[in-house]
Design a protein around this nucleic acid. Sequence first.
RNA 1: UGGAGAUGAACGGCGAUCGCUGGGCGUCUAGCCCAGAGGAAAGUCCGGGCUCCGCAGGGCAGGGUGGUCUGUAACACAGACCGGGGGAAACUCCAGGGAAAGUGCCACAGAAAAUAUACCGCCAUACGCUGUAUGGUAAGGGUGAAAAGGUGAGGUAAGGGCUCACCGCUGAAGUGGCGACACUUCAGGCAUGGCAAACCCCAUCCGGAGCAAGACCAAAUAGGGAGGCGUUUGAGGGCGGCCCGCCCAAGGCCUCCGGGUAGGUUGCUUGAGGCGUCUGGCAACAGGCGCCCUAGAUGAAUGACCGCCACCCCUGUAUCUAUGGGGUUACAGAACCCGGCUUAUGAGCAUCUCCAUCGA
RNA 2: UGGGGGAUCGUCUAACGGCAGGACAGCAGACUCUGACUCUGCUUAUCGGGGUUCGAAUCCCUGUCCCCCAG
Length: 128
Amino acid sequence: MPEGLPRPERLCGRGAFNPVFKTGKRIKLPELTIVFAPNHINCSRMGISIGRSFGGAVKRNRAKRLIRELFRRNKDIFPQGRDIVFIPHKGWLRDEDINLQVTLKNVFKAKDKCKRLDSGDEAASTHW
RNA sequence: UGGAGAUGAACGGCGAUCGCUGGGCGUCUAGCCCAGAGGAAAGUCCGGGCUCCGCAGGGCAGGGUGGUCUGUAACACAGACCGGGGGAAACUCCAGGGAAAGUGCCACAGAAAAUAUACCGCCAUACGCUGUAUGGUAAGGGUGAAAAGGUGAGGUAAGGGCUCACCGCUGAAGUGGCGACACUUCAGGCAUGGCAAACCCCAUCCGGAGCAAGACCAAAUAGGGAGGCGUUUGAGGGCGGCCCGCCCAAGGCCUCCGGGUAGGUUGCUUGAGGCGUCUGGCAACAGGCGCCCUAGAUGAAUGACCGCCACCCCUGUAUCUAUGGGGUUACAGAACCCGGCUUAUGAGCAUCUCCAUCGA
RNA sequence: UGGGGGAUCGUCUAACGGCAGGACAGCAGACUCUGACUCUGCUUAUCGGGGUUCGAAUCCCUGUCCCCCAG
């Protein structure tokens, strides 16, 4: 799988973000919240929503870069054909992101299992 | 060597891999090459450029500035100087015009808070017997943040610029300086208590909005829209608020087909640019010559990881030094562009100045 | 990004440059057999830092935070 992240694989504009927020499922982790919805395209797209309350411009850019890097390096963990939005929480960025990678792996593995068993998206969000 | 003050520059370097943004080349796709955050990019507190409002008119209102001169595109900025405060000095701080144009305020306390006045006092006179009345006085006490020149001497019933000397103040003249102002002489005999960051007066400056300005392309939706000419009348509208003044302008005629939302393109980075040098100037700065091109995103690019060197920190061995581990630091991220100001900041570096000590 | 407004007890609010007041809340006491109501008393505040002034919540400068508008 290529490790690039060109513009078609990112969410741009309010028109791309709003359907995800309206119809998407949410997974809440202590570090961040993940919202995802199916998009009817082959590849999956990602976006980051981060408000002013997270910190200054340096902190926000830092968080965005780290999340983008994580997504780009580990595309195979994430499900295909989804729009995924990451919302980092306030106290993040104090620790390293190694833990986050592992937890994300676990999350989506569990989700795949549930999907196979229940053949639905609903089961994943309850545990996390 | 120690302490203090002022100013300036810069915050790792090289290489490899995977990514992002812009530009160029290319068979326009694969790919290759080049470039890619700061001194504050921040706050948005001032001043400009640029764009539109037709031109950016006059007065009033409103707002800014406030020692002088100079610099500048302009400034609330900078430089030099003047005056005052601080410091032993280098140096530093000051919204630093006008209180005799007018209005207002000065709580409590105090006799009195600004045309002066008199609580305790002091003195004189009268009555009277240790007080009362009248008059004089403002030196002393007391109040207050502030009490109507200060100190000393003479004088006086007691006192008082009442008189004198010095200081301060005010006015006039002269000299020096572009000027703020300084100095000298003479006169007045003390008059203008403070607050203008209270209203205000004086001088001077300011048209409004802002790149989401503005220009262009253009799905959807509605059916009209746009441009030009022109007369009577002057409705209505526009020119930051009001008035004046100015302009557009209904109905008419002619010409044309567009309109403008979602979205896109542009504005968008060559500029009051930077560096070096010479000349003028005390300086800020200006001028001449030469060289250079140095981010341009739009859910918003500058990241991750590895190696070597450099620097810093820590622990043990060790004490010239070597080895091991960790870190690349603080504040912080361009959003039309400049000049400032303010604020946030870690460890240092360089230059100059002053003081103290030691040495020659 | 640009433009405008604001910050006062725990909460809502008032103030002429001169002792920061009121209501609710809290605490204590009184009343009551007890509680509620009522009464009395107390506690608690001018967003931070400078300046002007004798004196600042108020005037000026500067920072922090919040709200609104344009899109």
